[in-house]
Design a protein around this nucleic acid. Structure first.
Lengths: 219, 219
DNA sequence: TAGATTGTTAATCGATTAACAATC
DNA sequence: TAGATTGTTAATCGATTAACAATC
């Protein structure tokens, strides 16, 4: 994520708010009074209750002593803070399995993300319907970005092709790139890049498995 | 990640080591002397040079004043620290697009991860070859875990099925679950769970896009 | 030798947790 | 009113950065 954006909300807060949002949304029915306390949420998120109050304060949610926070207000405020109530158009580049999975994922729509097109270089894939989208030739990239005012591009191409596409995206005035290619992208600081590296998750797991193993062996 | 494991390496260090590992591996040729300085690496990773030295110290890499660190030693030490030099067998449960993408991903093998089987409940998928693996019926899960001494399970099933499978995995003595299902899993503390939530990445991007938007509107 | 670069300790920074007066 | 829960300030904790003596 670039630095020019003086993000007032840090990554941790963002993640906690998201978890809280999901929890409240999925359990709306169980709050008969329509309110929830910071203690309750802290327990669920496995964090401190002051943390919860601080997070809420940071996005302008106010509660009432002895009563708590109004669930619906909290949900609405988080939606707004995370930008889920704004419509964003995205294109997916790379109609492989991962690109298909992302194109097909229904969970994004509720968060305001609409995938308007899926691209691939492979002529054999052009015209196929993958993940609910007709695969388009890469040549159309710039035209479609312009037509749909696309701000976000999801990159699921092989590593060797990623930078070339990123350069085209830059020229097409894209604002953010969600990069699933296992490679570093060189882009100017005014473009938001979010790298999604599967291998980081694997590294964590691998390390923990190893430690677990050693720990067991030592007894 | 559970707490019982007194992880000596924290998440940040793990991630920096991984990035360093990739960088060195991909640029082995350019180090004529076979050594690299903490300054050089710090620049690439966009971090502080003391940080690099500290990270290296934490996994037992020693350098020489005026010379730096031996690249090959660094690479080997990181491989070892992250557990990439140990063979781990994994099963993938859910032969959808994501499960297929993960099963097919070649990058894992070099990190010691071998996917030994791919499962699905859908009878129509059984027997198909997806991502290089024959889809097996879920009934076989326990048998195969036992047979191949599988320690890691990758979960790419719909949210509503995730907990049920997790329970079976627990009983089958799995050690770690890499959870791509968009749901929270209830598992005992001795099982390592790594949640991979696409939606968190989207939330970050969405937030930054929103902030960018507001920032532009304000001028 | 001189001086570049390490290893390590101390200082800083930022995020989490504790405490508590305000208040419904 | 009494007391539960907020909002906020202060204390703690942990991670990053700075500094510098050791050393090749």
């Amino acid at each position: 994520m670039n630095k020019r954006n003086r993000t007032s909300l840090n990554r941790q807060t963002l993640e906690r708010l998201l978890l809280c949002y999901h929890y409240l949304n999925n359990n709306l029915h169980q709050f008969d009074t329509g309110t929830v306390s910071s203690v309750h949420i802290a327990e669920i998120l496995n964090t401190d209750e002051s943390q919860v109050r601080k997070d809420f304060t940071s996005i302008g949610i106010r509660g009432r002593p002895r009563v708590g926070f109004v669930v619906k207000e909290v949900v609405r405020a988080i939606r707004h803070a995370l930008g889920f109530d704004e419509k964003n158009s995205a294109v997916v580049i790379g109609a492989g399995r991962l690109g298909g999975a992302i194109s097909a994922y229904e969970g994004f729509v509720a968060q305001g993300l609409k995938i308007v097109a899926l691209f691939d270089v492979n002529p054999e894939k052009i015209g196929l319907v993958i993940g609910g989208h007709i695969v388009q030739p890469l040549e159309q990239l710039e035209v479609i970005i312009k037509k749909h005012h696309v701000r976000l591009a999801v990159l699921t191409v092989p590593a060797h092709a990623a930078q070339m596409i990123a350069d085209r995206l830059m020229k097409a005035d894209i604002q953010a790139i969600w990069n699933f290619s296992p490679t570093h992208l060189n882009v100017p600081g005014n473009i938001i890049v979010k790298n999604e590296r599967l291998i980081v998750g694997l590294a964590e797991l691998s390390y923990h498995l190893k430690t677990l193993h050693e720990w067991r062996a030592h007894r």
